[in-house]
Amino acid sequence: MINDFAGIYQLAKEKGPGKLVVLAPEDREFMNAVKIARHEGYVEPIFIGNLEKMQIAAEGLDFNIDQIKKVFLNDPQEIADYGIAMLFKKETDLVSKGQIPTSYIYRAVIKEEQKRGIKNNISVTSLLEIPGCDHIVAVTDVGVNITPDYEAKAEIIKDAVSLMNLLGYDFPQVVVLSANRGYGPTLQSYLDAQRLREEYGDGNGGFEIRPEHSVAELFDSVKVSPPHVFLAPELDTGNIMAKLNYVIPVKRCATLLCSAGPVAIPSRSDFTESIVRDMALGAVLAARIKEKNIGLKI
């Protein structure tokens, strides 16, 4: 079981380099992250994007990108489609978002998934390293589903559980969050939480749904330990929970685990250190998928 991000870096080094397609590394922080992730042996990159912008991004970084394989495209949707298609054709082990809006990547992944009839829903999971917590904590969905319904929530949990399984958490504990507070009408998030607990309460999904519904219940008492997965009731909550690293001492990384492999999802505002972590996580997940032979069969 990987308990912290140091474990992720170590494993990425041991198992790497994974073949990484970077979608539009047209920004200095992203380019620097690729340089470091490559230097550490986590990834071997392929670039898709605009040559001039990539060259400008690499300027002054002491990173000779001439040796890197490149595909020249300008349109963000074409860039995303091309890179994601490579993942589904097994021409790469993982993909990372560069300086393009995430919506293009989601669209490309959904298109490939639907073409194969594998998944109807995708989600982005953030991993947090929290001081004093003896394991990594996942928060999901932090990227795709604005107000997921019950069925979507069940799918989102399964995606996060698959990810945690790959990190060695065999039977993750899940907390379904809700701000149901005994005032006003009962929230849908609470009803969904009850239903998910009824449906998966006996552990038949390969995970446990815990009875708590709030962060306070889990971090207020020494008797209760934090879960492995937090399911956010809607996207704003997921997004806020996942990106508090500027105000509280947590570290984070994020990935979209589709049926063909991981897509690292840094935020456009992220800095090098955080983007390297996203890439290292992707490399670990890709390696574990290969080892367990659970990737897409083509």
Binding site: L177, S214, F219, D220, A232, E234, T237
Partner: peptide, 12 residues
């Protein structure tokens, strides 16, 4: 929902 989680993350 987001306010509840946000404030509790900062607090706890």
């Amino acid at each position: 929902e987001s306010g509840y989680a946000f404030s509790q993350m900062l607090a706890f």
